[in-house]
Amino acid sequence: MDLDPARLLLKPRQTGESESSPMLIAHLIHRLDIGGLEKVVADLVNHLPHDRFDHAVISLTEITAFKERLHHPRVTFHALGKQRGQDPAVWWRYWKLLRQLKPDLVHACNLATLEAAIPTRLAGVKRFIHAEHGRDSHDPDGTRRKYLLLRRFLIPWVDGFVPVSRDLHDWMLHTVHIPPEKIHPIVNGVRLPPVPNRSRPGTDPNRPFTIGHVGRQWPIKDPLNLIEAFFQLRRSYPETPLRLILVGDGPERPAIEARIAEYRLADTVHLAGWQNDVTPFWERFDLFVLPSRAEGTPLTILEAMAHALPVVATRVGGVGDLVVDGQTGRLVPRSDPCALADAIGEYLFDPARRAMHGAAGRERVAARFSQERMIAAYLALFLGVSVTKDQEF
């Protein structure tokens, strides 16, 4: 089916709806903060047709300043104050909130919210959609028995499961054993920016080759893998001016700082911290690197490709659906800094390869991973429109 949002808007309103009563979607997440799935929620709130949808964003824990990125005129925010570990009382608070809000459907994201399926039903909400943007950090391969049993037990309570990658789709189908009719693949998408004006190394003798990374500094993201690879590059090419910029923050930062000090990299590694606007960094990078141990469909890779950057990344999760090895970048095994350093090294002295792979990545995003395509797919799902299940990854 054609997923043109304009055409989907022609669908008649459901029984009981009036022109003055938009559909209310409650988006349930663990914490509203900077991150990939949170950006997807923000895109849905901002870009789904405002005359058809109102939104409530419910965080199990807290709401941060990230809420300023959500621009819908009728979006509300609700923090439930969940305590660390088990906090059964949070579901009582959640149930009471739904009784007040009376949403038409709940769109929940990732494992932390899956238990909400039962109180959602008990609150009288007719539809519960659960999206998987990546497996839990304590279960990166999706094989932990207690989580599998929980997912299987809750299948009858969930109307639809959304995997954002082929890896997650196949895992849902063959490992969790979710019925195929309940699985609705929707890949992440990003806005295509203007063609970047990026000065290349060599045009300015004082400009180093700049390797960039954007992401949370968590163990599962393995930023130390990138530090190790960069250290090896410095040893292999001591006369080549190199620079590494890491945008983001998290619990791994002290370990990163310690490794930078140990390897005496302070003059060439810049920790930029959290940034409200990453745009200026994309034009400073010559290459983007993602060193993760596990991923769903990382928006940072799509954003890098949209900015015409070649990408070197670990072959995990849905990364292989995005990066075409040898055409838009390079894929390497996870937790292998030698392989990561070698792949980065392929681009250091080959500007033609960088330009060709960067352009190919941008074209790939435009064709298959646009924000418009993602929004249209969610629009169809939320409206209950029947769409094809074989969306390309």
Rank of each mutant, 00 (worst) to 15 (best):
E262G: 02
D249C: 02
P196T: 15
L242A: 11
I227P: 09
G215D: 12
G212I: 04
Q232H: 04
R264C: 01
E257H: 02
L242M: 10
Y237T: 07
D277S: 11
I227T: 06
V214A: 05
R259F: 06
Q275D: 02
V269K: 05
I227L: 15
L242F: 10
I301G: 07
E228W: 11
G215A: 10
Q232S: 01
T210Q: 07
E228A: 10
P196V: 14
Q232V: 01
R243L: 03
A258C: 02
R207Y: 02
K221M: 15
E257F: 01
S199G: 01
D277P: 01
L302P: 00
L226K: 06
A294E: 10
H213V: 02
S292A: 09
E295R: 14
I211W: 12
A266S: 13
T240N: 03
A306H: 00
T300G: 04
F281W: 15
P219I: 05
G215I: 05
Q217H: 13
R253A: 01
N197W: 00
A304L: 04
A229N: 10
V289Y: 15
Q232C: 01
E239C: 01
T210A: 07
G212V: 12
L271S: 04
T297A: 15
M305E: 10
V214I: 14
K221L: 12
E303H: 09
L242V: 06
V195S: 13
R216I: 03
T300W: 02
G296R: 12
G248S: 12
T240S: 11
P254C: 00
I260K: 06
